[in-house]
């Protein structure tokens, strides 16, 4: 199983849009993409989960690892997650207190613009 990953670069951040099911089989692909992006200097990331059909604890773990990586480089990770079903998985693990959620990628990009203009 492979994910479709699309990236869109802005001045302030990089958006990685994820299409498909994120589980034990596919999360290594996402992890590799995130590590590569951080190594290329993209420490302000947005993961767009709008088109994620399924997310389990392996996927959550990959996203937790992404947050740790960007924060260690003084960056941040924002999530675009309009689907209640996916957001509820974060809530079940109390991780909604750790991540910042946005309904659209534009809102998340705007949030970075606000941060960077301070």
């Amino acid at each position: 199983m492979t994910l479709e990953l699309k990236e869109t670069e802005y001045n302030s951040c990089l958006v990685i849009s994820i299409f498909g099911e994120v589980d034990m089989g596919s999360s290594p692909q996402l992890r590799t993409k995130i590590i590569r992006s951080v190594n290329e200097g993209h420490v302000n990331l947005i993961l767009d989960l709008t088109s994620v059909d399924f997310l389990d604890s392996a996927g959550l773990g990959t996203i937790i690892g992404a947050l740790r990586r960007v924060r260690s480089q003084n960056g941040d990770l924002l999530l675009v997650c309009p689907e209640e079903r996916i957001q509820s998985i974060f809530m079940l693990c109390d991780l909604d207190k750790v991540f910042k959620f946005y309904l659209t990628s534009n809102e998340a990009v705007d949030a970075y613009k606000g941060i960077n203009s301070l």
Partner: peptide, 11 residues
């Protein structure tokens, strides 16, 4: 953030 696993069974 150093724990990427460990929530599966509680889920």
């Amino acid at each position: 953030l150093n724990h990427e696993s460990g929530v599966g069974f509680s889920l």
